[in-house]
Each structure stands twice: as C-alpha cells, then as structure tokens.
C-alpha cells in the first residue's frame, strides 16, 4: 500500500508546547488533527515533514460552548460532533447541514472543524501520487512551474474544497490564531486569500484554536447546498451557502452568499447591499441567483464539467433559500 514517509512524532499536552514545537522545527513540521487531509497528502508525497505534531491531546482545542453572544467551537471538534450538536443544529442549520455533507461517516468522525477550515486546496493535477505527478510534469502548486488549469497561469488556482468555510463566512464567523507571540482573532472573511499554494493567512508558527460564530438574532435564515456526483465521499464540485437576516416585517436587513469549490478562495458574492429592505421572495431570490452566477466562474481544477457547475449556481441559490426558509 502507499506508505507514509518517515517523520518524528510529537504529542504535546499544552498548546504552548505545540507552538514551541512549531517554532523549533520551523519549515520542517506539520500539524495533524484528524489526519484525513494530511495523511493522504503525505502518502502522495505532497508533504514530507520531518516532524509531525499531534493536536489530539490538547484539551483546550475541544468543545462547543456559548461565550457572550457567540458560539465558540474548538478547532479539534470533530465534523461528526459538529453535525450532531443540538445547539449547532438549532442556531445554524446550514452549518449542521454542511458538516453532514462532508465525505463519509468515518471521515466525519476523524476530521475536525479546524482541519476542514485549513484544508489544503485541491486540484485534479495536484492530489495525485508522486509517480502520477512526475508523469504529468508536475505543476505550479508542487514541484513544478506550469499550471495545467489556466494555460500560462502564474498563480495557482487549486480549489478551496472545505464545506464549512462558505457557511461560516455567511455566518460572520471569526477564527482565533495562536502563536508564540499571543493570540489574534480575525474575521474568516480575512482568513482566506486567492492563492492556491496556501490559501489562508495563517503563519507557519500559528495554530487555529477556535471558531467564534455570533449567535443569531431572530429572523436569520441559513441554507447550504452542495453539488457532487456521488451523494457521499466526494469533495464538493460546488458549494452554495446563504444567510439572510430578516427584520420583524420580513424585509431583508442583509443577505450573504458564499460560493465555493471554484478557485482558491471561497467567493463571497459582492454588491448585495441593494437587496436591503426587500422581501425575500421568489423574484429577489432569482436576482440573488443571477448575481452569484455573474460573479462565479468555475475552473477545470475539479473533474466535473465547469459549464454545468456554473449553471447550477442560480438553481442552488434558490434551493438554499428554500431550505433556509423551511
């Protein structure tokens, strides 16, 4: 079977120790949470760290709890625990739905929220064995200089493929990053960047410790739709997350849509301010779908036809809202 390359393993009990290990082995170290992304990638020799730091022993990274006006979710919370958490289901049905739609049952038990948010970007030319990539001639993201998705492209466009990211973006979540220098909280909106090689602003000496999601007021509706060929296991070919804050009179206070599995950064649909004050009716939703459609252009980084993925955007926007308002 495909083997893992050799590495030294560390299992710190405290976050500070983990951070110290990151510092000490800078450039030669990877963190392992659930392992569902890192282990296949290491088997593919996409990463060959000399040191692997396990996060399972660090208790402060676990748990889901209310804190002020926020629901705080520890980074090591498993996707399955997230999916079956009653508070999550009650407050953020779209998040529970996205979690349930990830991979298969075993991978949901293993994978973590922090791991999903930090999921390496994916591309049909990248997530392959070393032999395969050698036969291809390698690519921009790893070991090579050409992009096979965008001819002549100089910037990697491997796709953000995490289901939870678009949902949490619509919910206005933020993440806490810890480093030896302290902790910083940044809005998830600023966490992702459009660079397929590394699509987050996390520094090599930082660990994502928790996610803070503002507890909604009455009138928030949320929805999530995922396109994939198989109804299990597959990574998304398209993710559509929506959230809308309605006032007591049903008029929109704000609406957010994030479309992902396109390029390196989940795409937050822009220029939706004009929808403020409108009713969330069929006409509005159709316009929202068109707005999303105009702004999104899937690429061949995923092996499902791009034209179809694009055409599904307005349909999925409509279905996400329909689900949201159920």
């Amino acid at each position: 079977m495909l083997t893992l390359p050799p590495f030294e393993y560390h299992a710190p009990m405290e976050l500070a120790d983990a951070l110290a290990l990151l510092q000490k082995h800078a450039g030669k170290v990877k963190l392992i949470a659930g392992g569902t992304d890192l282990v296949p990638n290491m088997k593919h020799r996409l990463f060959m760290p000399e040191h692997v730091v396990g996060l399972k022993q660090i208790s402060e990274l676990n748990g889901v709890r209310g804190e002020g006006g926020f629901l705080v979710i520890g980074a090591m919370t498993s996707i399955a625990d997230l999916a079956r958490n009653p508070r999550v289901a009650l407050l953020f049905p779209s998040l529970a739905r996205a979690a349930t739609a990830i991979a298969g049952p075993q991978l949901r038990e293993m994978g973590t929220l922090g791991g999903n948010l930090c999921l390496d970007t994916r591309c049909v030319y990248y997530n392959q064995t070393h032999f395969w990539r050698k036969a291809l001639g390698y690519c921009l993201k790893k070991d090579g200089t050409v992009c096979h998705v965008v001819k002549g492209g100089q910037k990697c466009v491997a796709a953000a493929s995490n289901d939870t990211a678009p949902v949490l973006l619509t919910l206005g979540a933020s993440v806490e990053l810890a480093s030896p220098n302290g902790r910083r909280a940044i809005p998830l909106e600023e966490f992702y960047v459009a660079d397929g090689v590394a699509n987050t602003v996390i520094e090599p000496n930082e660990i994502l410790t928790k996610v803070r999601v503002p507890i909604p007021r009455a009138g928030l509706v949320t929805g999530y739709q995922k396109l994939r060929i198989r109804a299990a296991i597959d990574y998304p070919s398209l993710c559509v997350a929506v959230a809308a804050q309605q006032q007591a009179d049903g008029k929109l206070e704000w609406v957010r849509m994030v479309i992902s599995a396109l390029g390196s950064k989940p795409h937050t649909v822009k220029r939706l301010e004009g929808f403020q004050g409108r009713a969330l009716d069929a006409a509005t939703i159709a316009e929202l779908g068109q707005a999303a459609h105009r702004q999104c252009h899937p690429l061949t980084n995923i092996n499902v036809e791009t034209g179809w993925r694009r055409e599904m955007i307005p349909v999925f926007v409509r279905r996400a809202f329909a689900e949201a308002m159920k």
């Binding site: 392959q128 296991i233 597959d234 990574y235």
Partner: peptide, 12 residues
C-alpha cells in the same frame, strides 16, 4: 484512485 474514479456508494 477510488476518489476520482467514482463507484456508487450505498446512497447512490
């Protein structure tokens, strides 16, 4: 691979 060459699961 069994990720990219998709064979139907129990839910498909």
């Amino acid at each position: 691979s069994l990720l990219d060459y998709r064979i139907p699961t129990s839910v498909d």
